[in-house]
Computed example of a mutant assay.
Amino acid sequence: MLKITPYLWIIVLIAAIGGLWYPILGYMMLVVMVTLLTTSVFRGRWFCGNLCPRGSLYDFVLGKFSRKQNIPKILSSLWIRVPAIVFMMSLMVNRLSIALTTQNTFEKVGTIFASMCLTTTIVATLMGGYFSSRTWCTVCPMGTMQRIIGGKKHQLKMVHDACVNCKKCEKICPMQLSVREIGNNPDCIKCNRCVEACPKDALYF
């Protein structure tokens, strides 16, 4: 985790709420999308655990109110996640195509990004509040895209002989992954918390 990570959630509020009145702020969503897709080529879902504004919102704001229940396993299935990508991308493309044929296109496109950010943030907050704060990250279309593009990059490594089976790594994992059995898990968000929590320095990237 980077030092700036705990404060990035402010960007969500600026883009999702401010963007409805000042459409140019909605383009912050586009910047985030381009950045995460670019970094995924080299580090998989590293963006999710270090630079994602919504990930910061879930960890440092929503995490204080979440019920901290188990994330439903079905949400990690690609049978759920791929259709979610197709649906959301189709919806966005359709709205953008309409906006491009009207006047004030620049403002309307910015508003579309802002409204999508607001809508998905509300859904994610409800899911995170009821289950665990990072529930949305399990099914997130952008997170799934990062998994598909660079899921095998920058993987967590483990010195098995050094592990004392204390399970501290699994208790602290925001994605609720089986860290000690993680192997080549493309949904690891590389937040480094398990590495920092390990008393025997058995984990590393």
Rank of each mutant, 00 (worst) to 15 (best):
Ala124Gln: 01
Thr135His: 07
Cys48Phe: 09
Gln176Arg: 01
Lys64Thr: 02
Thr121Ile: 04
Asn104Val: 13
Lys108Leu: 13
Lys168Glu: 11
Val82Leu: 15
Ser40Ile: 01
Ala114Phe: 02
Cys173Val: 02
Val86Gln: 08
Phe106Cys: 04
Arg45Leu: 02
Ile112His: 04
Thr102Gly: 05
Ser40Phe: 04
Lys168His: 08
Ala124Glu: 00
Lys68Ser: 11
Phe47Lys: 05
Thr35Gln: 09
Thr144Val: 07
Met142Arg: 08
Ser133Cys: 08
Gly129Ala: 08
Met92Asp: 03
Leu177Cys: 05
Asn165Tyr: 01
Val164Pro: 07
Thr119Ser: 12
Lys167Gly: 03
Ser56Ala: 05
Lys64Ile: 08
Thr105His: 07
Asp161Trp: 06
Ser76Leu: 05
Val61Tyr: 00
Leu62Ile: 14
Met89Thr: 12
Tyr130Gly: 10
Asn50Arg: 07
Arg45Asp: 03
Gln155Cys: 08
Phe131Ala: 04
Leu57Glu: 06
Gly151Lys: 05
Leu36Glu: 10
Ile74Glu: 04
Lys168Asp: 14
Phe60Trp: 09
Ile71His: 03
Lys108Phe: 01
His160Cys: 04
Lys64Arg: 12
Cys163Lys: 04
Ser90Gln: 07
Val123Met: 12
Glu170Gln: 14
Lys153Arg: 15
Gly129Thr: 08
Arg134Trp: 08
Val61Phe: 06
